[in-house]
């Protein structure tokens, strides 16, 4: 399922290893360090399969894709904050759009420093207020921090 997700951004392949439901970047150098027991986490996490037929990318994968693909939307500071709060992107948020402008296609969301903050689905801009439907953003780390501290 990782391959399918990656193919939405680039024709290039990403080599991976799978541990349980999680995908990690293949890394031969790091592999030399392995202990003789099953690891929980190996190098760069790329994502995981959900119970249903769904793949959830990691932010490591989105970072990687942002260096391999030009399917990106660059946002202003205000757009960055709003997107990190889970909001959809609007015309006023956007600095520029790169790659194909096909409705329904996935786009990586980059801040002014070309750092990836998440991704979403492009819904067009001509005469429309909304540009991109929010799918996933780095604000999730805040939520995860809170959940893990509460436990």
């Amino acid at each position: 399922m990782l391959d399918t997700f990656v193919s939405k951004f680039t024709d290039k392949k990403i080599k991976f290893i799978k541990i349980g439901i999680r995908y990690f970047l293949d890394n031969k150098e790091l592999e030399k360090n392995r202990l003789d027991v099953k690891e929980k986490f190996f190098g760069l996490l790329l994502g995981h399969d959900e119970e249903v037929d769904k793949f959830t990318p990691s932010f490591g994968l989105l970072d990687l894709l942002s260096k391999m693909s030009n399917e990106k939307i660059f946002v202003k500071d205000i757009g960055e904050m709003d997107f990190l709060y889970g909001k959809h992107l609007r015309v006023r948020h956007v600095l520029r759009i790169e790659g194909e402008k096909k409705i329904g296609f996935l786009k990586l969301v980059q801040n002014e420093h070309d750092e990836n903050i998440g991704y979403g689905k492009y819904v067009g801009e001509e005469g429309k207020i909304q540009v991109l439907k929010h799918r996933m953003d780095r604000g999730i780390f805040l939520k995860r921090d809170k959940e893990k501290v509460m436990h």
Binding site: L25, N27, L30, N33, R34, L35, V37, K38, E39, K40, F41, F42, G43, L44, L45, S58, F59, G60, D63, R138, F141, R144, D145, K148, H151
Partner: peptide, 22 residues
């Protein structure tokens, strides 16, 4: 539970050179 916090930190900080064991 503590290791999962570590994993979350590895992802947030973009660490790509660590292997973690429970």
């Amino acid at each position: 539970d503590r290791l999962s916090i570590l994993e979350n930190n590895l992802e947030r900080l973009g660490v790509d050179n660590c292997i973690a064991y429970l």
